[in-house]
Design a protein around this nucleic acid. Structure first.
Length: 879
RNA sequence: GGGCGGAUAGCUCAGCGGGAGAGCAUCGGCCUUACAAGCCGGGGGUCACAGGUUCAAAUCCUGUUCCGCCCA
């Protein structure tokens, strides 16, 4: 038998097995229509990305399930890939160019894109290598990238079809504009942040000179673009002014006072300025009332010539100047402190401006309706379920999706505008001429599509759509999507909409939504806070298995994960524990001969551990099936360490020393439990389990393709489990006496078990070898009733009393104290049980089993109490 | 303002109708030939607060306080 080194060193081991799995093709699906299938697509990380702890959690959870299913006989496919991350990647490359003193505008579109591709080839693969370090079992031969040729074709196909169906349109709308990234953003790409600001109260004089109306605004510079003042039609204060004209200060334009029910009379003065080109609500008001749109700020957030004397000023300078000028003209009534909610770009954090511009949109209502139904009817399950509410809330209030981005890196919109007739031609292939007038004077749209547009197609585009591929037929819909809640709407909802629309079926059966990983104080990890835990550093330090196990053990549903490095360190100890248990088994495997354990005549101790093993297997499987990752991990952990190692391994030493048949049986049981546990743990800790498994007698090429353990009902035995609980209780009681009296662990002692009942004594007699072994007794005396020994330390169990004679050493005061403490505990419990059993309602309404359980408990407690009292009495007589 | 989640041992968290648990930390004793990254034993909690439902509440309901997140 192979002997293992004394401590587990993961270095070298992880790379070795990962290479082996890849070379052997274990990561690949079988494309076997006869087997049940399990498929997953990875949430594609940004190609610019670096593995952070969120990726690590997400990937580990997927791998746990994927490995479980693969071992459990499913034909398993896990598609990996990356996302081109338009804005983020463009920003990164632009930054690099800036260091060379270049900008994308110097280079021009074509050259710039070449540079991005170059950058992608050079650095884009980093995160893929990092995912491998985590041990994730994706099929790397199917690595996809959202800008790949195949995926780009899918994007075009979708765009063209949606256009043809009238679900894509182009128009002048108000959108979120990032002046720094120089592009439109979707609503959800804007992060809102409450910021201290002001509310300026400005006097707007009536054109007829009969007075003024005061409007309140948080953005005074936009007044230059006002085309009305609006009040609520119910508002008595302003009713007489409706229809009158205002002479807009600083600009002199005449604008009307209008009534609109959306105006909140409680806000400010109840009269609001309407700036249709620079405010979402005002845009809607203007559309309802047919007001003109005056754009006073451009794409750089500078004032346009419409802003008259303010033209050319930056938005913040303009604000200052406008306020000064109003003050100078005596039109500024007051300035209040006011908290404003600023929209910020989720990529660069610059303040987003609502801006009127020409953009492309997808109509959402027709796509959202089936996607709502899919969740309502359970075609796709959200786990945990409470995300459903948020999902429905979002989906019912969905607004059209602005999909055009004014950047270069991305899928260029396949639309060509004719310079002659002005019509748009949308086409799968680059057209020669305008589809409307035949003119060749056509020009392709400059804008690219939102990155999420291509991600929305991910579950079918990666499987080959629009081609009709075997993969698509076999693995769509996918089985599971694991993702973080923050992209539920960005991504998951859109995949549902696109999947339903183009495939006619939901893209995934289950969506497991995991939490955010925070630091140990519950704060979001961020570079600026300096509290980031780098997964790669953790892997270097503690090994992948320990790191993965920690994440899984902390992944309780519906709760954020607070990760502390000490937890990882703690679970590294578990890895080492497994290693050493394996070492022990291997050291004792000489002359090993396999036997059929279900046919063997085994000692009760061995029946016990096999029963516990079977139940543990069932519990772990159930937890995994329910995506209760923490329960799965902790159940396996507890069994392996605190049942197998702490008890059975110790018990087995006796059998091993005995030699002969006893040794042979013990070898088989040890190996069975160890090997099964390794398979049980493999999805959580792929590397150490493989390393050990390969060193054990085994069948097959790798643990990752060995069958996942199944419960063995023949091994489950309640009575054996109950017996062992009593035996363990007795052993612990004797060990406690040792500790109390500072008796050296190796010093031999004698114990007397006194019980009234024959059957109790029989139990202790049957198990006396193991009690003697684990409590280190030189002698175990069984005494039926009779006088209690003098000069002994003692412990009271429910059906026996244990005495350890300590001639002259017994501290009577200490013994009394111990008993008094025990007495208090028993009394408290007994009074609770008694009052319950005296309660008529309880006896009438509680289930029979519960009542019976309480009765048994009462009896046990009473017996125990009696023994405590007798022992106390006796001890007192001695003083 | 609306919605969701949380408050359980010093810390991090399970448990979510019938005997308060785990890991870490802590205290005491042990290098007992698998493991000191270990073993054995111990201490530590009016389960946020106030009501209610129930035979029975940490667990279900209502309200309050505090904390976090999302949306407006």
């Amino acid at each position: 038998m192979k002997e293992l080194p004394k401590a587990y060193d993961f270095r070298g081991v992880e790379e070795k097995w990962y290479r082996y799995w890849e070379e052997k093709g274990f990561l690949k699906p079988k494309l076997d229509p006869k087997r049940p299938r399990f498929s997953v697509v990875i949430p594609p990380p940004n190609v610019t990305g670096k593995l952070h702890v969120g990726h690590a959690l997400n990937t580990t959870l997927q791998d746990v399930i994927v490995r479980y299913k693969r071992m459990d006989g499913y034909d398993t496919l896990w598609v990996p890939g990356t996302d081109h991350a338009g804005i983020a990647t463009q920003n990164v490359v632009e930054k690099a160019l800036a260091k060379e003193g270049l900008s994308r505008h110097n280079l021009g579109r074509e050259k710039f894109l070449e540079r991005v591709w170059q950058w992608k080839e050079e650095y884009g693969g980093a995160i893929i290598e990092q995912l491998k370090r985590l041990g994730c079992s994706c099929d790397w031969s199917r690595l996809r990238f959202t800008m790949d040729e195949g995926l780009s074709r899918a994007v075009r196909e979708v765009f063209v079809r949606l256009w043809e169906e009238g679900l894509i349109y182009r128009g002048d709308y108000i959108i979120n504009w990032c002046p720094r990234c120089h592009t439109a953003l979707a609503d959800i790409e804007v992060e809102r942040e409450p910021t201290p600001g002001h509310l300026w109260h400005i006097r707007y004089p009536l054109a007829d000179g009969s007075g003024y109306i005061v409007v309140a605004t948080t953005r005074p510079e936009t007044m230059l673009g006002d085309t009305a003042v609006a009040v609520n039609p119910e508002d008595e204060r302003y009713r007489h002014l409706i229809g009158k004209k205002i002479k807009l200060p600083l600009i002199g334009r005449e604008i009307p006072v209008i009534a609109d029910k959306e105006v909140d009379p409680e806000f400010g003065t109840g009269a609001v300025k309407v700036t249709p080109a620079h405010d979402f609500a005002d845009f809607e008001i203007a559309r309802r009332h047919g007001l003109p749109f005056v754009k006073v700020m451009d794409e750089d957030a500078r004032m346009t010539k419409e802003a008259g004397p303010y033209a050319g000023l930056d938005r913040f300078e303009a604000r200052q100047k406008v306020v000064e000028d109003l003050k100078a003209q005596g039109l500024l009534e007051k300035i209040e402190d006011y908290e404003v909610v600023l929209g910020k770009c989720y990529r660069c954090d610059d303040i987003v401006e609502p801006l009127l511009s020409k953009q492309w949109f997808v109509k959402m209502k027709p796509l959202a309706t089936p996607a709502i139904a899919a969740i309502e009817r359970g075609f796709t399950r959200l786990i945990p379920e409470n995300w459903k509410n948020l999902y429905f809330d979002w989906m019912y209030n969905i607004r059209d999706w602005c999909i055009s981005r004014q950047i270069w890196w991305g899928h260029r919109i396949p639309a060509w505008t004719c310079k002659d007739c002005g019509e748009i031609t949308v086409s799968r292939n680059t057209p020669e001429a305008c589809a409307h007038c035949g003119s060749q004077n056509i020009k392709q749209e400059e804008d690219v599509l939102d990155t999420w547009f291509s991600s929305a197609l991910w579950p079918f585009s990666t499987l080959g759509w629009p081609e009709d591929t075997p993969e698509l037929r076999l693995y769509y819909p996918t089985s599971l999507l694991v993702t973080s809640f923050d992209i539920l709407f960005f991504w998951v909802a859109r995949m549902l909409m696109m999947g339903l629309h183009f495939m006619g079926a939901v893209p995934f059966r289950d969506v497991y939504v995991h939490a955010l990983v925070r630091d140990e104080k519950g704060q979001k990890m961020s570079k600026s806070r300096g509290n980031v835990i780098d997964p790669l550093i953790m892997i270097e330090k503690y090994g992948t298995d320990a790191f993965r196990f920690t994440l899984v053990a902390l992944a309780a549903q519906g709760r954020d994960i607070k990760l502390a490095e000490s937890r990882i360190e703690g679970y590294r100890h578990f890895v080492n524990k497994i290693w050493n248990a394996a070492r022990f088994v291997l050291m004792n495997l000489d002359g090993f001969e396999k036997i059929d354990l279900t046919q063997a005549e085994l000692p009760r101790e061995s029946l016990w551990i096999l029963s516990r093993l079977s139940k543990t297997v069932a519990q772990v499987r159930r937890a995994l099936d329910e995506y209760e990752f923490d329960q799965a991990a902790l159940t396996a952990y507890h069994f392996f360490w605190h049942e197998f190692c702490d008890w059975y391994v110790e018990m087995s030493k006796r059998f091993l020393n005995e030699g002969g048949e006893a040794r042979k049986l013990a070898q088989n049981v040890l190996l069975e439990v160890l090997e099964t546990s390794l398979r049980l743990l493999h999805p959580f800790m792929p590397f150490v389990t493989e390393e050990i498994w390969q060193a054990l007698p085994h069948e097959g090429e790798s643990i990752m393709v060995a069958p996942y353990p199944k419960p063995v009902k023949e091994f489950e035995d309640e009575s054996v489990e109950a017996e062992l609980e009593r035996i363990k209780e007795a052993i612990v009681a004797i060990r406690a006496i040792r500790a109390d009296y500072n008796i050296h662990p190796t010093a031999d002692i004698k114990a007397i078990f006194r019980a009234e009942k024959e059957e109790s004594l029989r139990l202790f007699e049957e198990f006396s070898p193991v009690i003697k072994q684990l409590a280190r007794l030189s002698e175990l005396v069984l005494q039926k009733g009779g006088e209690r020994p003098h000069g002994a330390a003692q412990a009271v169990l429910s059906e026996a009393e244990i005495f350890v004679p300590l001639e002259g050493l017994v501290d009577i005061e200490a013994e009394l104290k111990k008993l008094a403490k025990e007495e208090a505990k028993v009394l408290k419990e007994l009074s609770r049980v008694k009052s319950r059993l005296e309660n008529e309602g309880f006896l009438k309404k509680a289930p029979k089993e519960v009542i019976e359980k309480e009765r048994v408990r009462r009896k046990e407690l009473e017996e125990k109490l009696e023994k405590i009292h007798e022992n106390m009495k006796r001890l007192k007589e001695l003083t």
